[in-house]
């Protein structure tokens, strides 16, 4: 196995009384898209900014591509590409001009035209950056992050505030980053995004990692159960449903019945047989497996986006 591209151990950052980051450790393999998941204020951005060399940790160690970030933050900056949360650039400068500007800060830089093409901003290459839409601005931010052809790219909530279409288009960009072999550290509070993009992820809350693994792994680890839902049907009574094989809980709300089961295949088959016997059909039948949202809810007792 390769040496990790990023290795973080026992990272701590304290703001006054608040332990914003409270002993975080993880490792990111080269070429992975690694997700930092958590609600606002969980410590995601603080963690990322310490890895980028923007903030000095109050404890712990960070190694990036073999460089000790805490001791040599300037050296790290040459190696990484950064997209910060909600960055406005020099408003009057065009994408082309901004890429030239940021390129001039690095020892080596890619040609602006190549980067503009890479994020599909050709049409807006010469427009002042203030005139770009939210999605275009984020694509520009990613192009700027790639200006020094970095091995490791940090994307801090790149899709926050974007409409669904712009979000999907940005996901494509991130998938292409992965295809090019970049290591990507992505923070997000969209669980769907993490499920879609991340090879591995950690969930952070109150400055601590509360879960880590792959999206599927986390869901399976925390949920064997799934749920079966359908519209209320008088003959399918509470008692009958509760006695179905595998069913461990029945809820009735808003005209719908929800049947929780540790063995959803068995339970569903038994439910359909029962309905046949009674001569009814459960309308609006659907089966739900757990999502990261459920994992998060279970782990923290709250929804991710509140």
């Amino acid at each position: 196995m390769n040496k990790p591209a990023i290795e973080v151990a026992d990272l701590v950052k304290i703001y006054g009384e608040l332990r914003a980051v409270d002993g975080i450790s993880f490792a990111v393999d080269p070429g992975q898209v690694f997700g930092l998941l958590g609600p606002n204020g969980a410590g995601k951005s603080t963690t990322v900014e310490m890895i980028e060399g923007l903030r000095k940790p109050d404890g712990g160690s960070i190694t990036l591509l073999g460089v000790d970030v805490v001791r040599q933050p300037q050296r790290v900056k040459e190696l990484i590409g950064v997209q910060l949360q909600s960055t406005a650039f020099f408003k009057q400068l065009s994408a082309r001009r901004l890429l030239r500007l940021f390129g001039s800060f690095f020892k080596k830089s890619l040609p602006p035209d190549q980067l503009i093409a890479w994020v599909n901003l050709e049409e807006k290459a010469d427009a002042p950056s203030a005139a770009l839409s939210g999605g275009q601005r984020q694509r520009l931010a990613i192009a700027i992050a790639l200006v020094n052809d970095p091995q490791v790219v940090f994307l801090d909530e790149p899709t926050t505030g974007l409409d669904p279409q712009a979000r999907r288009s940005l996901w494509d960009v991130i998938r292409r980053l992965r295809a090019e072999g970049k290591t990507v550290l992505l923070t997000t509070h969209y669980l769907e995004e993490a499920e879609q993009l991340c090879d591995r992820l950690v969930i952070i809350d109150h400055g601590r990692i509360i879960a880590s693994g792959t999206a599927d792994g986390l869901i399976h680890e925390h949920f064997e159960r799934a749920s079966v839902e359908f519209f209320n049907e008088p003959k399918l009574t509470h008692e009958r449903l509760a006695s179905l094989p595998g069913a461990d809980k029945v809820e009735e709300a808003n005209g719908r019945m929800t049947l929780y089961s540790g063995d959803v295949a068995h339970t569903t088959r038994a439910l359909l047989s029962l309905a046949d016997e009674l001569g009814v059909a459960p309308r609006g039948l659907s089966v739900h497996s757990a999502t990261l949202e459920d994992v998060f809810l279970k782990l923290t007792g709250k929804h991710l986006r509140e």
Partner: peptide, 16 residues
Amino acid sequence: ALRVGGVLKRLGATPL
């Protein structure tokens, strides 16, 4: 404006 807009911070993430 550069500070509030985060431009100074973004520049801080480069070797500049």
